[in-house]
Every structure is written in C-alpha cells, then in structure tokens.
Design a binder for these strands. Structure first.
Length: 519
RNA sequence: GCCCCCGUCGUCUAGCGGCCCAGGACGCCGCCCUCUCAAGGCGGUAACGUGGGUUCAAAUCCCAUCGGGGGUACCA
C-alpha cells in the first residue's frame, strides 16, 4: 500500500441519460473518499462515443451534482491542471497513445465485420471454448479495428478494496478494440490513458466494470513502460504527469443498486433522476445521507448523519460487497425527520419552489401536473412570505416531503372549494349546521389569537352539548375545504377573520343540503 | 454456454470463531396521546438460502449446491 500517495479519485460518467441513485452513489463514494483523505476529487466526462453522448445529459448531471452539493476540485466547468476533462477534447492524446502502442507492436488490425465476428464467437461457444478474440486467430489485415494483444496465458489479480483479491485467467480475456474502424478510440484506451495522465490513485466505480479490469491493468503497464504516455503527452502539448504518480494502486468496485424486486434499477423504484427527487421534495441532505448508507455504514452504527459526519466517518473498508436495493420508504422517513429538525425560516425558503410553480406537484397519474396553478406569485410577495412563515410550524410536523406543502397551503392563500367527500362525511353528523352557526357567532367578536379562538370554540361544546370533535370537524371542512388540515385554532389564527367568517357562511347551505338530504 | 462478483428480518444493515436461541433503522401491527391528518411515546412481528465438512464452539472458516447480479460490443 502506497500510503503516502495523495489520494486522487475521479467520477467518470458517460454523458447519456441522467444521474440517478446508482450513479450518484458512485460519485458520492469517490467524493467522500477524497474529502475524508483531503485528497482531490476529479470529474471527467467520458464522451468518446459521439453517438451516445449528449450536451443535455452533461448539463443535467452538472445541475444534479451542484444541487446535491458534491463539489469537484478538478474537472469539467471548473478546469484544473491536468485537463481538459472531457475526453472528446483529449482525442489527440488518445490517438498519439494508440499510434505509439501500435509502433511498439501491441496492436493489430482486425478487419472482420461484426457479423463475421458474431458467427465466429457463436462457433466458439458451440465448441465449448471461450468466445474470446485473440491475436493469431485473425487474418493479417491492414484495415479495420485495432485490437490490443493481451497475454494468451497466465493469470492477473487485483486487490479490490471491497472484494479482496480477484483473479482472472488471460485465456478467457478477449483482445479489446482500442481504435474503431472510424478512427475513434474506445473506452478501454481513453479511460486507462486519462486515469494515468491525471494521476488517479484509486479507481472507484460500479461493479459492472469489474470484468474490464484485467485489460486495464495490462494497459497501465504498457503506457508507463519506456515513458510511452509521457512522450505522447509531450507530443500533444498536454501537462506532464507528476513524477510520483504510478498506476492506480487499488480499485473499489461498488455493487449495483437494484430495485426492490432485486432486478436492475428501473424508474419504478428509484432510478428517477435527481431532479425528479428534488421535485418530489426530498432534501439534498437526506439523499446524501441515505445514499451513503447504501452499502456503507459507520462503525458506531449511527444512521442520521450530516455531510461532515459522513465525511469524517467514511472509509472504504466498511463498504459492503452485496447489491443494495434503494428504499424509498426509508428515504421518505429520513426526509421527514430532517424537515422536523429544520429551522422554520430556512424551511419556508425551501418550500417556495414547491408553491410558486417552479416544481410542479404530482398529477393524478403521478407525473408532474402541467395544469397546476401556482399558489404563490413569483417572486412571492411580502404578505405571502409572512403567511408562509406562519404556516411553516404547522406543516413542519406533518410533512415527509416538501411537495406535501402544496396539499396544505391552498386554503391559506386563496379560495378553495369544499371537498365533496369531506362534506358528505362530516356534515351528515348531527349538530354540524349548529356548529357552523355557533362557530361564526363565537368567532365574530373574539380576539384573533390562537388562545382566544381556542377558548371560544371549546366553549361551544357545552353550549351545543356535543363533543369537541363534532364542533371542530365541520368548521375545519368549511374553512379549509377538507377534513384533513393542520391544527384548527392555529390555522384559523393565521387566516384573516373575515375570510374565516365568509367561508363559514358559505358552507352553511352546503351543510344544510347534506342534512336535508338525509331526511 | 463461458468468465467474474454477491447471498443475515420485506428493505438498508451490525456481525469479521465463543459476548448472537442474532442488534439497530425503515416498513408493518398494536397501544398511548389527540380537534382531523400527521408527529411523538411505548410495545410487538420478522432473517443467518440449502447440504456437507473443519472446530470443544460457526451467521462468522472450507467445499458443494441453489439463487441473484455483472460481463461476454467497433457502449461505457
């Protein structure tokens, strides 16, 4: 173990699609290790496949990382001493490396078409042989792809931080294509080259890349031998490597994140974009906390951890090797706890995007509701902000996700209709009409404070000879339109008196109709 | 098919030969509190995939088997 080597880790996604829980975990663990060791976190974009890489995807990833608060020391956007950090901008280097490998006799042409190769591989399988492409089995050619000639026999091993020692037999390893027939380099070459050129000390990535490790190890040796990479760097005018850097000294292959059915993550169970989770009202702190716990746990068993606490406690040797299912229920519960711990003023600000139309709430189909009308204006007026701040303590206790505020807030900001089911359920109870009438009278002259409102309303139970529930529910439905709301006295107190009285009056005919309907 | 990885409550996990007839968290169930819904408090349910070894002793080590996953691309 090269204990003294500065830790340099990297997150190297291909920019297709968006960041989801699985990819964020890879980013997070790299980030955590860098921060824990006071090392360097590099963000490189692997866009060597022009057909798949998109600018939108990259922008979306940047947005997600920023929202999560995962900052990078070197990489796209921020730059750094060993850039550029988009592989498409490093193509000269990759080509120079390929040419030098070819000159040194490590590469050979393979001009078989994909169809021919498939047939050939199938034949190998039928013969019960490894379907691997090897030098010597292909015809002499001077066109087509360039493959790397791997050793034909013997074994390779890596020490993996999460899996221990893993060994492969070279006889089972296929010679990888390093340069496509169109001249573009592939992942194995670009990735190995850049990891070396940027001094990556530990490769931490998904388990799906475990099987690609042997050829990378082999490539590291070739690129470092005789200063091949150094010369190529010099040739294309890119920054020289630090002389103390060797090849990555270890690997950490993180298990897959799976769905609750143990199958590959799909949208149904959490493979939603980070932006989608933001829209649903999860806090970035909760996401980071929960995702960190996916395969890792601190020695002392704590589960509620702030960012700094995770950084302090994180270590690779506590990372588990088995696949983990992302549990949205647990995320939700943690999110609720965090909301309850928040400072009300800070929470009010976080709620605004869920009320002003920035984040659309779910429609009936679970998708964002395009017809939703914002509850607050953009930007919110001072009056709206004051009312929202007053509302926060009431909703803070009962929210799991920020988006839920949209369920409670409307009656505090605008007229809302009375929910029919709520009316039918509540107004059919004996005494409802009387409760509304007496409530209006009692509230008309009272001080508009929580205490006075409570005293006035509680006094009604004796006057009407019914339990308080029978008083409170009709009034709740009349004023909020729903039989579910924050506590009644507090709710009324932050509304204007005339609004409350108007709504009580407006609900009376509805209540009478329900009662009369019952005969 | 071949190669590699993985296997503790429904889920995330603790556990690295005796402290474990397995602990915590989420979920679920019940009770308490209560103006609704929540929140909160208390209690409960529930797991070492299977079969062989090794050992005085195994969730922990070994082997087999079954199951799951990844790879087997001119994607990354």
């Amino acid at each position: 173990m090269a204990a003294d080597r500065e830790v340099r880790v990297r997150f190297a996604p291909a920019p297709s699609g968006w960041l989801h829980v699985g990819s964020v975990r890879t980013a997070l663990f790299n980030w955590l290790w860098a921060r824990h060791t006071r090392g360097t976190f590099i963000w490189r974009i692997e866009d060597t496949d022009a057909d798949r890489a998109t600018e939108d995807s990259m922008q979306s990833m940047i947005e997600a990382m920023r929202w999560l608060g995962l900052d990078w020391d070197e990489g796209i956007e921020v730059g750094g001493p060993y850039g550029p950090y988009r592989q498409s901008e490093r193509a000269d280097l990759h080509r120079a490396v390929a040419r030098r490998l070819q000159d040194a006799g490590h590469l050979y042409h393979d001009d078989r078409s994909p169809d021919e190769l498939n047939t050939w591989r199938q034949q190998r399988r039928d013969d019960d042989l490894p379907p691997t492409v090897k030098r010597g089995t292909v015809p002499d050619a001077d066109t087509g792809t360039l493959r790397l000639a791997l050793p034909a026999s013997g074994t390779v091993s890596v020490h993996d931080e999460v899996r221990g020692e893993v060994t492969w037999d070279w006889a089972n390893e296929s010679d990888p294509v390093l340069v496509r027939s169109n001249g573009a380099v592939t992942y194995p070459l670009a990735n190995a080259t850049d990891d070396l050129a940027q001094g990556v000390s530990l490769v931490c990535r998904g388990e799906d890349l475990l099987s690609v490790t042997p050829r990378q190890l082999f490539l590291y040796d070739l690129l470092l031998a005789d200063g091949l990479l150094d010369d190529a760097l010099d040739e294309v005018g890119l920054p020289a490597r630090d002389p103390s850097w060797g090849a990555p000294s270890s690997f950490a292959h993180l298990s897959m994140v799976v769905g609750e059915d143990r199958k590959k993550l799909s949208k149904r169970h959490g493979s939603v974009s980070i932006q989608e989770l933001a829209r649903q009202g999860f806090l970035p702190e909760t996401l980071l906390n929960t995702i960190a716990l996916l395969g890792w746990s601190p020695r002392d068993g704590r589960e509620r951890l702030d960012r700094d606490e995770v950084v302090a406690a994180f270590s690779l040797d506590q990372v588990g090797a088995s696949a983990a299912a992302f549990d949205v229920d647990k995320l939700t519960a943690f999110n609720g706890e965090r909301i309850r711990d928040m400072d009300p003023a800070a929470l009010a600000h976080r709620l605004v995007p869920h009320l002003d139309g920035t984040y659309l709430p779910d429609g009936d189909d679970g998708e964002p509701d395009p017809d939703h009308e914002p509850i607050l204006s953009t930007p919110p007026s001072d009056g709206e902000l004051v009312r929202l701040t007053a509302l926060v303590p009431l909703v803070q206790e009962r929210m799991q996700v920020l988006a839920e505020v949209a369920d409670y807030a409307p009656p505090f900001f605008r007229e809302v209709g009375i929910d029919e089911a709520a009316a039918a359920k509540v107004f059919r109870k004996a005494g409802s009409v009387e409760a509304l009438e007496a409530g209006a009278t009692a509230l008309a002259g009272v001080d508009w404070t929580v205490e006075a409102i409570e005293a006035a309303l509680r006094g009604l139970t004796d006057e009407l000879g019914i339990g308080f529930g029978k008083v409170a529910q009709p009034i709740r439905v009349a004023v909020t339109g729903s039989n579910v709301s924050p506590p009644l006295f507090e709710s009324l107190a932050i509304m204007d008196r005339h609004v409350v009285l108007d709504r009580l009056a407006a609900a009376l005919p509805v209540a009478r109709a329900v009662r009369d309907d019952l005969g």
